[in-house]
Amino acid sequence: NKFNKELQWATWEILNLPNLNEEQVKAFIDSLRDDPSQSANLLAEAKKLNDAQA
Rank of each mutant, 00 (worst) to 15 (best):
Asn1Phe: 01
Asn1Arg: 00
Asn1Ala: 01
Lys2Arg: 06
Lys2Ala: 15
Lys2Pro: 15
Phe3Glu: 08
Phe3Pro: 15
Asn4Met: 06
Asn4Tyr: 09
Asn4Ile: 05
Lys5His: 11
Lys5Arg: 03
Lys5Pro: 15
Lys5Asn: 15
Lys5Gly: 11
Glu6Ser: 01
Leu7Phe: 10
Leu7Glu: 12
Leu7Trp: 08
Leu7Pro: 04
Leu7Val: 12
Gln8Ala: 09
Gln8Phe: 07
Trp9Asn: 09
Trp9Phe: 14
Trp9Arg: 12
Ala10Lys: 03
Ala10Gly: 03
Ala10Ile: 10
Thr11Asp: 03
Thr11Ser: 07
Trp12Ile: 10
Trp12Tyr: 11
Trp12Val: 09
Trp12Ser: 15
Trp12Glu: 15
Glu13Pro: 02
Glu13Ala: 10
Glu13Thr: 10
Glu13Lys: 05
Glu13Ser: 08
Ile14Gln: 01
Ile14Pro: 01
Ile14Leu: 13
Ile14His: 01
Leu15Gln: 15
Leu15Ala: 10
Leu15Asn: 07
Leu17Thr: 01
Leu17Ala: 01
Leu17Trp: 02
Leu17Glu: 01
Pro18Gly: 10
Pro18Leu: 07
Pro18Arg: 02
Pro18Ser: 08
Asn19Arg: 03
Asn19Glu: 04
Leu20Val: 02
Leu20Ser: 00
Asn21Tyr: 10
Asn21Pro: 03
Asn21His: 08
Glu23Met: 11
Gln24Arg: 02
Val25Leu: 07
Val25Asn: 02
Lys26Gly: 06
Ala27Asn: 07
Ala27Glu: 12
Phe28His: 01
Phe28Gln: 00
Ile29Ala: 03
Ile29Asn: 02
Ile29Trp: 03
Ile29Val: 06
Ile29Ser: 03
Ile29Lys: 04
Asp30Ile: 09
Asp30Phe: 07
Asp30Pro: 00
Asp30Ser: 15
Asp30Thr: 14
Ser31His: 07
Ser31Lys: 14
Ser31Ile: 08
Leu32Pro: 00
Leu32Asp: 00
Leu32Asn: 00
Leu32Val: 05
Leu32Ser: 01
Leu32Trp: 02
Arg33Phe: 15
Arg33Tyr: 15
Arg33Trp: 13
Arg33Lys: 14
Arg33Val: 07
Asp34Glu: 13
Asp34Thr: 11
Asp34Tyr: 14
Asp34Pro: 02
Asp35Asn: 14
Asp35Leu: 06
Pro36Asn: 03
Ser37Glu: 08
Ser37Phe: 10
Ser37Gly: 08
Ser37Asn: 08
Gln38Lys: 14
Ser39Ile: 15
Ser39Met: 15
Ser39Gln: 08
Ala40Trp: 06
Asn41Ile: 09
Asn41Gln: 11
Asn41Leu: 08
Asn41His: 09
Asn41Tyr: 14
Asn41Ser: 08
Leu42Asp: 01
Leu43Lys: 03
Leu43Ile: 09
Leu43Asp: 00
Leu43Asn: 01
Ala44Lys: 11
Ala44Glu: 11
Ala44Gly: 06
Glu45Ala: 08
Glu45Thr: 09
Glu45Asp: 10
Glu45Gln: 12
Ala46Val: 02
Ala46Gly: 01
Ala46Asn: 00
Lys47Ile: 13
Lys47Gln: 04
Lys47Phe: 12
Lys47Val: 13
Lys48Tyr: 11
Lys48Leu: 05
Leu49Glu: 05
Leu49Val: 11
Leu49Trp: 05
Leu49Met: 09
Asn50His: 02
Asn50Asp: 10
Asn50Pro: 00
Asp51Ile: 05
Asp51Gln: 11
Asp51Asn: 10
Ala52Trp: 11
Ala52His: 10
Ala52Asn: 12
Ala52Gln: 11
Gln53His: 06
Gln53Glu: 06
Gln53Tyr: 09
Ala54Glu: 12
Ala54Asn: 10
Ala54Tyr: 09
Ala54His: 07
